[in-house]
């Protein structure tokens, strides 16, 4: 039985889709079989970030409505062994799918694949409920900003209320120079406030834009800082103990960060 991991955040635009694409690709590169499930009905994105938008025939709504079989809607990513995308419907209403249908679908997928990563829509309505219903594990993505952290806190409460007891945190778009100046909350601040386990930290990285332009997840590019950070998270998901950077002091922060991400200082 595979794992169903929902990637969520509350606030939009903080990096859920980017994270889903990169972690899924990373898990596939580690030899796991993976389905990326785009639950953002009406605003699908995961297909574009993965560069698979031209290969869509059927979508999630077609599957739950019985118009096609699961296998027909799964797009195989030929660049990686065992990586599949189930696209969301673009033209349908986000209430086109019911939680019971999502539960059934994720269950069936988890019987065949090692990991099902669910890219959750923003918000806390029906789409959120659909995305979390079949999950047995949850990841909360946030950025180091007041509004994003506030929404993350709300989502953590809702996840816990829905039986997802141990949400894990990814802090995205950390700007090292701003943290050093004291103009961006650091990792300790955020873990202190949200009080959940930290899964990883992703630096703000221009390469994310480049990779989205190309439709190739940053994790497949060894020069990308963010890609390196995603690699560490993949290892942690697989149970490996990859050390975190120590942010007790801003002293030597760059050096520590460089070490953790496997980079040399400029």
């Amino acid at each position: 039985m595979g794992e169903v991991i929902v990637i969520t955040s509350g606030k939009g635009g903080v990096g859920k889709t980017t994270t889903t694409a990169n972690l899924g690709t990373g898990l596939a590169l580690e030899g796991k079989s993976v389905v990326l499930l785009d639950a953002d009905i009406g605003l699908r994105n995961l297909d574009v970030v993965m560069g698979l938008e031209n290969r869509i025939v059927y979508d999630l709504v077609d599957v739950v409505e019985g118009i096609c079989r699961i296998k027909q809607a799964l797009i195989k990513d030929k660049r990686y062994p065992n990586l599949y995308l189930m696209p969301a419907a673009q033209t349908k209403d986000k209430n086109a799918v019911k939680p019971e249908q999502m539960l059934k679908l994720t269950k069936e997928l988890a019987e065949e694949y090692d990991f099902v990563l669910v890219d959750c829509p923003a918000g806390i309505e029906q789409g959120f409920k659909n995305a979390i219903v079949g999950a047995n594990r949850s990841i909360v993505v946030t950025t180091p900003e007041v509004s994003a952290v506030r929404d993350a806190d709300r989502i953590i409460g809702l996840l816990e209320a829905n039986g997802l007891r141990n949400p894990q945190l990814i802090i995205n778009r950390v700007k090292i120079d701003m943290v050093r100046r004291g103009d961006m909350m650091n990792i300790d601040d955020m873990v202190d406030i949200l009080a959940i386990d930290l899964l990883g930290v992703i630096p703000d990285d221009e390469y994310i834009v480049v990779s989205t332009n190309r439709g190739e997840p940053a994790i497949s590019e060894s020069k990308s800082l963010a890609g390196q950070a995603y690699k560490n998270i993949v290892k942690r998901i697989l149970g490996e103990n990859v050390p975190f950077m120590n942010l007790d002091t801003d002293e030597g922060f760059m050096a520590k960060l460089a070490k953790v991400f496997g980079f040399r200082k400029k």
């Binding site: 180091p144 900003e145 007041v146 952290v149 506030r150 806190d153 943290v179 004291g182 103009d183 961006m184 909350m185 650091n186 601040d189 202190d192 406030i193």
Partner: peptide, 15 residues
């Protein structure tokens, strides 16, 4: 004067 301290303080109360 650190804006991150202000952010943290505001968040703690808000939450």
């Amino acid at each position: 004067s650190n804006s991150k301290d202000i952010a943290k303080e505001r968040l703690q109360l808000l939450l």
